[in-house]
Simulated assay, not measured.
Amino acid sequence: MGSMLISLSHFCDKHGPRILLVTQAAINGSTGDELLVPTYPTDSYCDSCLLHFPKSSASDIRSLKSNVGNQCFVSTQYSSIRYQLLTLIIRRSFSEETMIYDGMPLVFYDDTRGLNLVMGFKLNDDNARGNERRYCLIFTIDSKDHKASMELISANWSFITGGFDKMINYIRDSHRQQIQKKNDTANENGNFSLLGGTYLRGNKVKVPRNLAELTQDELLFVRLHKWNSFLLHTCMQS
């Protein structure tokens, strides 16, 4: 069986499809250092497509590494060893005509991209193009063994889709609560719009916003790392 990984991707208004976070399992017995990415310039990233971990006292954190059982898992902004693979996967995911961003699973497979289970979702945001931001959670099996890959996905279908559902619902609920707080504040200040159902804005310029900001959860990507690591570890044991 090939390697398994989970990624969160976003269709950025400025940069198109971008990986926000990818979680991979280290080689058995490894400390996971081979999966860490070097310090990289962030000039080519906007707030919407930049991985956001809480800042440490020393420097910005660019990677997370933890163990589940005796297996090490690493989450990074991109994969230095599977960069091209993930680029092909997210381009296919966001260009797929059947992707409807309502949490329904989509599966595609080929010898180049492996087997991918994709669940798309979107968040309403007046600061985004079309007033919404689109995301995909993707479970990937990087293998040319179609039969074995399908058997693993089938055996873990409810577990994977259920785990993705929990992640998506957490993000949606956190975002919804954040919008409600802003609307309540605007209503108290007399700036509420009955027509739009949202607080009035003087500035209509579309601006990039990070997922951690949209949910008001500084630990969001840490939670995603932990969720992804647990999902991958469980599937690796099946």
Rank of each mutant, 00 (worst) to 15 (best):
H10W: 01
L137V: 00
R18W: 01
T87S: 15
R133W: 01
L8S: 06
D60F: 10
A148P: 02
G69C: 09
K226T: 03
K55I: 07
I90C: 11
S57T: 00
R133P: 00
P38R: 12
S174F: 13
D173G: 04
N187F: 03
G120N: 12
F221K: 00
M104Q: 15
G120T: 04
Q71V: 14
G32K: 10
R209P: 07
R209C: 13
I90K: 11
D125Q: 04
F139M: 11
G2Q: 00
D184A: 13
R18P: 00
T112F: 02
R133E: 03
Y101K: 08
P208C: 07
L21N: 05
E188H: 05
A155D: 01
K182Q: 14
F108N: 13
C136L: 12
H10K: 04
N70K: 12
F94D: 06
M119N: 15
T76I: 10
G29E: 06
L5H: 00
L123V: 02
A26M: 05
I100Y: 15
L51S: 03
S174P: 04
D60C: 13
S149C: 11
Q180E: 14
V118D: 14
F94G: 08
K65S: 12
S56M: 08
F11T: 00
L232I: 02
L85W: 00
L231A: 02
Q177V: 13
Q71W: 09
L220R: 05
G120I: 06
H146W: 03
I138A: 05
E96K: 14
T215V: 13
N189D: 13
K147Q: 12
M236V: 03
D165P: 03
L219H: 11
S3H: 10
A26E: 07
D165R: 02
S80I: 13
D217T: 10
G32H: 10
I61E: 08
F221L: 02
L115T: 15
K122G: 12
S7F: 01
E151P: 01
P41M: 08
D111W: 06
D102W: 11
R209T: 12
T42G: 06
Q178V: 09
N210D: 09
Y135R: 01
R223A: 10
S149Q: 06
Y135C: 05
I89A: 11
N124L: 13
W227Y: 11
Q84E: 14
I100C: 13
K182R: 09
A148M: 02
N187T: 08
K65R: 15
S7V: 01
W227L: 10
L88Q: 02
H15Q: 03
R172M: 11
Q71H: 12
L200P: 03
F221P: 02
S174I: 11
H15D: 06
R201T: 12
Q237D: 08
L88F: 09
Y109Q: 15
L64M: 12
V37G: 00
V22C: 07
M236S: 09
N70D: 14
N116Q: 13
D145S: 06
K55C: 06
G163V: 00
L195T: 06
S63D: 15
E97C: 10
L51R: 00
A25W: 00
D125H: 04
L64H: 07
S3K: 07
R223L: 08
E132L: 03
L86K: 08
T161C: 07
R82M: 12
S193D: 15
Q84H: 14
L219D: 13
D13N: 07
L231Q: 02
T39A: 11
I160Y: 01
G197S: 08
W157Y: 14
